[in-house]
Design a protein around this nucleic acid. Structure first.
Ligand SMILES: [Mn+2]
Ligand SMILES: [Mn+2]
Ligand SMILES: [Zn+2]
Ligand SMILES: [Zn+2]
Lengths: 137, 137
DNA sequence: TCCTCAAAGATAATAATTATTATTTAGGAA
DNA sequence: TTCCTAAATAATAATTATTATCTTTGAGGA
């Protein structure tokens, strides 16, 4: 169960603490690209004394160590993403829902496009789509 | 000069105030997708008594009225975009620079792709690319 | 088992943004 | 042109998300 988290933390050279394991578990469990607040609320059930500062610090270090990424939004609040494969996002214009969109064919299309259409003075590392619209239910 | 701003505001049914004209002028003048702070600093030169709250409120109403859009970033700070045509963004992974990237051919490619690859339960309104990488100088 | 230093907890501070409220003013009506 | 009024602004306080500080704790190696 939590052995996966412990193992991954160790591989990254991060000390294995109950807080880190709990946060790691929370972000893989929570869907919809949770906020720090979402994560704290979830963890508090089993770990009521966890400190807010700890959660922010751990999230930061997870981002640095590429266990997590940040999701860009136009709200004044950060959201986190545990899916690390190259994927895109569906943003609902009505709610705050953000869903993952994986599409290997699209990735190839874009990759090929930029192979033949270099951007001057710019070296591309990653291309992500933010697809805005509405979910039908 | 400022007649364009006055005219545009009037068209949108917004009262024409010196503050709104100044903010409108600032955002079209400032490059690199300015923050509210950037805008305030710029305006203060000619308009030293403008209030921070006013700037935020005006920016909000400009976004609502589609005179501006917000730019997604992974920092805890909002940035604004006066370019309203459908365009994409180059994010520098080293600095906070965000440049516009316009590419009609790419837009068509993507549009056509999604015509034949509908996303289930989702109605696309807009697709934007966030292209991360490094500027060569 | 013991030590040590990195991590966690508690708390205060900061930064960005929003809310409140008194004052001013744009712009339509008289 | 003057007057009126709703809407906008300025000043200020409050809120929210995040970060910093500092003391205590405990993970993990010796
Ligand atoms: Mn903030
Ligand atoms: Mn904030
Ligand atoms: Zn995602
Ligand atoms: Zn732009």
């Amino acid at each position: 169960m939590s052995d996966f988290y412990r193992k991954t933390l160790k591989e990254k050279g991060l000390k294995v603490t109950p807080q880190r394991v709990a946060i790691f578990e929370a972000i893989t469990h929570l869907k919809n690209h949770p906020t720090a607040e979402n994560i704290i609320a979830y963890i508090k059930k089993n770990h009521p004394n966890i400190s807010v500062g700890t959660v922010y610090k751990v999230l930061d270090s997870f981002v640095e160590n590429k266990l997590l990424s940040k999701v860009k939004t136009e709200k004044d609040i950060m959201r986190y993403d545990s899916v690390l494969t190259n994927h895109h996002h569906l943003y609902c214009t009505e709610t705050d829902r953000i869903e993952d969109y994986e599409d290997e064919q699209l990735n190839e299309l874009i990759e090929n496009y930029f192979k033949t259409h270099k951007i001057k003075n710019f070296n591309i590392q990653e291309v992500k789509l933010q697809i805005s619209g509405k979910f039908n239910n």
